[in-house]
């Protein structure tokens, strides 16, 4: 392929290239999840697929909402919603770093012309009961990817270990196109990021900081939590045969709703210190409950005997 370093790829072409790259490496190409999430990790294609022993490879773009990071579209680097490209490789292949670097070459980065390094950065999500070991990948000092070997998810030790690659798409695009403001990124040949997304940034920032009604948002949190807990307890109480029928995946959607509503309340500045820790604990309880039920529900009843 012929790199176009002067202009760089458009935002959408860069995404196509990355998805094609990973599709050619046995990844299922999934679509963004249709529930608000704070990170690509929360997509069930990551959160649930890394559990259990079934090998899996998947890649997808996930628009990720962080209400507290909203800046009304006025900050060149911070966004209410940014786009992550998420790759899960389970189990982690031995040449994963080299393959990842090839993906950078695929979007026009000439590796030996840049200072690319893997610097220690371990990842942790208290609300998901998840953590991993890894790096942030720096490209000439710019953090472009979070590279993580998942160790635990939903409070469960993982085996096999999955590797998670999370590309920060706006940063990489701005770098490739040589622009300092994400809103100046060319999304397609004739549209900029500003034209596509600015109104959304403005309105959701205003909603997150000014308009979201704390009492109603709290009530929504409670409702979603109650529904999720009801599903989890129905699962627990069901007999062995009935267990397969109890819907666990919707319980996870409800858990994601709670997580987003919590972030919203947080950005409204209405959560006290003690309440904050308690709410994180409530979301984590749902996430861990879902993870444990999911593993049980999907694992074959008769596991093959393991001999040393």
């Amino acid at each position: 392929m012929t790199p176009r370093p002067a202009q760089g790829l458009t935002f959408q072409r860069m995404i196509f290239r990355l998805l094609e790259f990973w599709a050619s490496r046995q990844c299922v190409i999934q679509q963004p999840y249709d529930v608000e999430v704070g990170a690509g990790t929360m997509h069930p294609e990551t959160f649930l697929r890394v559990l259990g022993s079934e090998p899996y490879r998947v890649a997808y773009v996930q628009p990720s909402r962080r209400p507290a990071d909203g800046r009304y579209g006025e900050n060149p680097n911070r966004l209410y919603k940014h786009q992550q490209l998420q790759v899960i490789l389970k189990p982690s292949p031995a040449d994963v770093q080299a393959v990842y670097l090839k993906s950078l070459a695929a979007i026009g980065i000439v590796l030996e012309e840049h200072d690319i390094r893997f610097e220690e950065d371990n990842w942790e999500s208290p609300t998901l009961g998840a953590w991993g070991i890894g790096w942030q990948v720096l490209l000439d000092g710019l953090e472009i990817t979070q590279f993580t070997y998942f160790q635990q998810c939903g409070g469960l030790d993982l085996d096999p270990i999955s590797v998670e690659l999370t590309y920060g798409l706006e940063r990489i695009a701005a770098f490739l196109q040589g622009v300092d403001n994400v809103f100046d990124i060319r999304w397609s040949d004739d549209r900029t990021y500003r034209q596509v997304r600015l109104a959304e940034e403005q309105q959701f920032s205003a909603y997150s900081f000014e308009y979201a009604d704390p009492a109603r948002t709290r009530a929504l949190f409670d409702l979603h939590e109650a529904e999720a807990l009801a599903l989890l307890s129905a699962y627990r109480e069901a007999g062995d045969d009935a267990k397969k029928r109890v819907p666990i995946l919707p319980a996870y959607d409800l858990c994601l709703k709670c997580s987003h509503l919590f972030n919203l309340l947080d950005s409204r500045g209405v959560i006290s210190v003690t309440e904050r820790a308690a709410m994180i604990g409530r979301v984590r309880k749902l996430a861990c409950g879902v993870a444990a039920s999911y593993v049980e529900q999907t694992s074959p009843r008769t596991a093959p005997a393991v001999t040393a």
């Binding site: 009961g129 469960l156 030790d157 393991v306």
Partner: peptide
């Protein structure tokens, strides 16, 4: 090695 997972919220 037999896989065993620690359930529960705390790691």
């Amino acid at each position: 090695a037999p896989h065993a997972a620690a359930a529960g919220p705390a790691p």
